[in-house]
Structure formats: structure tokens, C-alpha cells
Design a binder for these strands. Structure first.
Lengths: 197, 197
DNA sequence: GTCTATATCAGGATAGAC
DNA sequence: GTCTATCCTGATATAGAC
């Protein structure tokens, strides 16, 4: 099914962005990376901005795959103990030396940074962020079933915000992986404890 | 003293970067902004990359000015109550609708993001970050004089990391100022409480 | 040190064949 | 749907006068 060139291109775009950033994404580099002509990219995605938009969408979908429940059974029956495990796990997944993860993290950061100057990127971004926050709040809610919803949301916002901040530090070589893990674990502990009061 | 065109140019560059990002910095835009010719910029900074390097250095120096103690007396004699005030204050300073603050935040974020792909930028960045973390840890230490140093550092790392994450969200329009403030305040409360145990 | 040109080039985008 | 070839804008960089 050679028709999934679209996908091939988007995967290539994710890799190129991971290497050179959104700023460094050249249509021709992308074409070479994906093994297609530049014209084909324009055919599928209209222009550079469109390509970028679709890539963002692609990446955030792909991130859901491994951020969402890890493949085991359904989530809603998890007990507090397991829920906490899963929460911690899902947050720590952001920090791994795997190419795909690095790619996703970089692309995500780049897109966020780009959204500062390109308002048309904000829609997707906001939606994806909200989903993420919601998922984390949900997990927190399973750990602390009695906590009020607004408190859960606030905790999730802090946790995910922290993750984004630390992620950039990690990617720019300023924060070793193991240290990032430790900081995240403790942050989770603090928030959970906070929610139990 | 028209000889400080260099500075004029760098200030202009900071403004342009705040509006268009590092990637959006055009030599001619900069020239217009600074009221000089493009040739002069090349004369002083050699090329675009050089201009960028000097600008980022300029910015991180400038950021030290208002991140450090706000201008009042010396810091080390502050009581816990005032120290906490000052800590909160200094963190909240990141989130303001003032042009200079926005400028610095954006430029800082851009700098960090660029460092992912340009290792030569990492030195300055790492140094500045460390100073910041140290300052915050210091303030925390005044609030909780009995807390052990490593715990203070970890708290400061989380707080500053959170700030960087939230800052990007704010700048990309995903997080209202008032909400950012609330999240930061609560984070400070959590960390301080954590340090008292 | 600073300006007015202007050369040079990279990269986004399109036409048209298959 | 996909490619080859090419156009063309806009941005970097330099020459040379003052």
C-alpha cells in the first residue's frame, strides 16, 4: 500500500524536526528524508505551514499511544496503589533515551515554542495539552478518590507543566535523565500527599 | 556617545526576537528596528550567527538584573516571613504583561530551545540556570533554615523547572496570567511545607 | 564607523509530464 | 499520486564611498 506516503512523510518530518527543530525544517531535507519529491509534500499538505500542522497532529496522536494506558486492561478499575504506579510510569515515560521518545519530546517542545509566534498552531496544541492534563488528573483521581476535581486539575497542571520544563532542560543537555526521574517522582509524591489533605 | 550602537543593536535584537523568535530574526528587520543599516550589523557582529550569539549573551546578562534581589537592602538578614514573600515575588515576576518581561521570557525560551540543536549555546545557558536555581534555593533556605541543602536544591529545581514549563504555556496563549500565578503560589506552598518535614 | 547600493544564494513554491 | 525541472522571492552578505 504505497498510498501511505502521507504517513511516511510525517514520520520523516518528526525525525527531521528532532534533528534540526521546527526552525530547521527545510522542505527539501524533508523530501530527501522521506524519499519523495518536494512537490509531493506540497501536493499532500499544501504548504510548509500545513505540513507543520499535520506533523503536530501526527506527533500528538502518536504520543497518546504510549502516554495512554500502557496496553494492559481497562483503566477505570485500577486500585489506588496501581493507579499511582501507572501515573508515575506515564510521567516518567517522557524521559527515555529512545529515539521515538526523544523525537516526540523535541517535536512537542518545538511546536509549543513555535506557537508563540504562529497563532494558527495554538488550536491543536491547546487541545492536546488539555487532553494530557485531563488524563493525569484522572489518574490522580484514582489515587485519591476523595479529592475534589478542581484540586486534581491544578495538580495535573503543575505536574505536566513541570514535565515540559524539565524536558527542555533534559534535551538541551542541562539535566541528566536519572536526575529528572528523581525530581518527577518527588513531585508526584508531593502532589499526592497534598491531595490527601 | 553614539559609539554604543552595539548596544542599541542588541536591544533591538531582543525586541525583534520577542516578536518573531530566533528563527524569525531577519537582519534587515533588525536594522530597521535599531535604526541602522544592515552593513553596520555585519561590521560589528560578523554574521547572523554572531549577532545571535551576542544577543543571547546580552539577554541572559540582562535577566540577572531583575531576577536577583529586587533592589532593596541586602538579602541575608531577611526573616522567614519576608523571605517567603520575596521568593514568591521573584518567581511571579516571570509572569507579567510588561514588554521587558515578556521579551526576556520569550528570548530565554528561544535560547533554551535553540540550545537543543546548537551545543555552543549550552555553556551560557547552563551557567545562568545554575545561578537561578542557586538563588531560589537560597531564598528557600531562608524560609526553612533547618532544611538540608540537597533538599533545598531539589525544591529549587522543581520550582524553576515548573516556571519554565508554565512560562511557555503562558506565552503560547494556553495559560492565563492569573491562573499561572495561582499555580505557582500553590507550588511554592507545597515545596515549603515539604521542606519543613 | 556608518551608509547606499548590489551581488549572491537558499529555500519555498509551482507547472506540467507521466 | 508522483516526479523533474524551474521559477522567484526574500534574506544574507559584501563592495566601496563617505
Amino acid at each position: 500500500m504505497a498510498t501511505d506516503r502521507r504517513r511516511t512523510i510525517l514520520e520523516g518530518a518528526a525525525r527531521v524536526i528532532a534533528r534540526h527543530g521546527v526552525r530547521g525544517l527545510r522542505m527539501e531535507t524533508l523530501a530527501t528524508e522521506a524519499g519523495v519529491s518536494t512537490a509531493l509534500i506540497y501536493y499532500h499538505f499544501k504548504d510548509r505551514a500545513g505540513t507543520l500542522r499535520h506533523t503536530l497532529e501526527f506527533i500528538s496522536d502518536r504520543a497518546d499511544r504510549y502516554t495512554g494506558d500502557g496496553g494492559g486492561g481497562g483503566g477505570s478499575t485500577l486500585g489506588p496503589r496501581d493507579a499511582r504506579q501507572e501515573l508515575e510510569q506515564s510521567l516518567l515515560l517522557e524521559f527515555q533515551e529512545l529515539p521515538e521518545v526523544r523525537e516526540n519530546s523535541i517535536a512537542w517542545g518545538e511546536l509549543r515554542a513555535s506557537a508563540i509566534f504562529e497563532p494558527e498552531l495554538r488550536g491543536d496544541l491547546a487541545r492536546a495539552t488539555l487532553t494530557w492534563i485531563h488524563d493525569v488528573a484522572d489518574l490522580l483521581g484514582r489515587v485519591r478518590p476523595t479529592a475534589p476535581a478542581p484540586a486534581l486539575t491544578a495538580s495535573a497542571e503543575r505536574l505536566t507543566g513541570l514535565l515540559e520544563g524539565l524536558s527542555t532542560r533534559w534535551l538541551s543537555g542541562a539535566l541528566p535523565l536519572s536526575h529528572a526521574h528523581a525530581l518527577v517522582r518527588e513531585a508526584v509524591a508531593l502532589e499526592i500527599e497534598h491531595l490527601s489533605r
